[in-house]
Amino acid sequence: MKIEVHLWSGLRTLTDGLEKVEVEASNTGELLDALAKDYPALVPVIEAGVSIAIDGRIIATGLMEPLRPDQEIYLMQRLKGG
């Protein structure tokens, strides 16, 4: 299923200027795999750690969260704390 992912604007240089991309995925892990495959320049960014927001719920590390096309999906830098 096609999922629309919003990227943070700093990634534009790695995605040919796009801030929103579409990939084939049904969960968060597949989404990252698909991003890595379609936009290889994103690999180091994903490896450095990213989080994914699904309709505002921030998934810090989980790769198994199911996704639906009607959700608003954002890629974010990996969350951590003090």
């Binding site: 943070w8 604007s9 700093g10 990634l11 320049a41 180091p44």
Partner: peptide, 20 residues
């Protein structure tokens, strides 16, 4: 410095973020 850093910056700049 990682891939996020735009060209032309000093090598002491090691990561870059832009959003909004």
């Amino acid at each position: 410095a990682d891939a996020s850093v735009p060209e032309g910056l000093h090598p002491n700049v090691v990561r870059y973020h832009e959003s909004g």
